[in-house]
Each structure stands twice: as structure tokens, then as C-alpha cells.
């Protein structure tokens, strides 16, 4: 079976766009970065990535430390116990807020 068996109408030879060679010449003549600059560009890119990664790490680390400190404080507040209120070593049995906003503590009379 040969390609001639397919109607040549389908595979007609098309002309490429005019001026292709001139465009290729212009493309080749386009200035490009000097090859010696490539290592410099590569190093610069790596350095930039390192700086970015470092700044992300610093921010992350500070946030982590703050979170840890808050968690520790919460632990202290929830676990800390205040000593019971006493007056001269005696626990009050009654509290009374007077009209003059004076708070009175009533304690048991010692035997």
C-alpha cells in the first residue's frame, strides 16, 4: 500500500509563511546574556532562594515560639491554685457588702 492511494487533495504541499528566513536571521542575531554570566545568574538565583527560605524560617520560628509561650502561660493559669483567703489565720464564714460599699468579713469566734 502506498501513500499515492490517499487522495493528494488531502496532503497538498503548502507554502510556509513568507519571510521565514529573515525572521530566523533576526532571531539568531538577537542579543543574549553572555555565557560567562550564567554561573553568576545561577548563583544569584540560589542566593535569592536561600534568603527567601531564611526569612520564611525566621517568621515561622518566631510564631512557633510565641505559640509555645502562650501554651505555657495557659498551663500556668489553669493549674495554679491560690491559697484560701484568711484573716489572721481564720477563714471568713460570711461576707457582707454594706450600703457604704464596705465589705465586711465575718469570722468564727475562736474557742
Amino acid at each position: 500500500m502506498s501513500t499515492h492511494e490517499i487522495s493528494p487533495d488531502y496532503f497538498r504541499v503548502l507554502e510556509p509563511p513568507a519571510g521565514g528566513l529573515e525572521r530566523l536571521r533576526r532571531r539568531i542575531a538577537r542579543p543574549r546574556p553572555h555565557p560567562l554570566l550564567r554561573p553568576l545568574v545561577a548563583f544569584g538565583s540560589l542566593a535569592l532562594i536561600a534568603v527567601l527560605a531564611g526569612s520564611v524560617w525566621t517568621t515561622y520560628d518566631a510564631a512557633q515560639q510565641e505559640r509555645r509561650a502562650i501554651a505555657e502561660l495557659e498551663t500556668i493559669f489553669t493549674s495554679a491554685r491560690l491559697p484560701p483567703l484568711t484573716i489572721d489565720g481564720v477563714e471568713p464564714v460570711e461576707l457582707d457588702l454594706g450600703r457604704d460599699d464596705v465589705l465586711a468579713f465575718w469570722v468564727k469566734q475562736s474557742p
Partner: peptide, 10 residues
């Protein structure tokens, strides 16, 4: 197609 062709020749 022209772009690919130019890529190849470049």
C-alpha cells in the same frame, strides 16, 4: 510551526 522550525535551526 514556524516557531518550532526556528527553534530547531537556532
Amino acid at each position: 510551526c514556524e516557531d518550532l522550525l526556528h527553534d530547531a535551526f537556532e
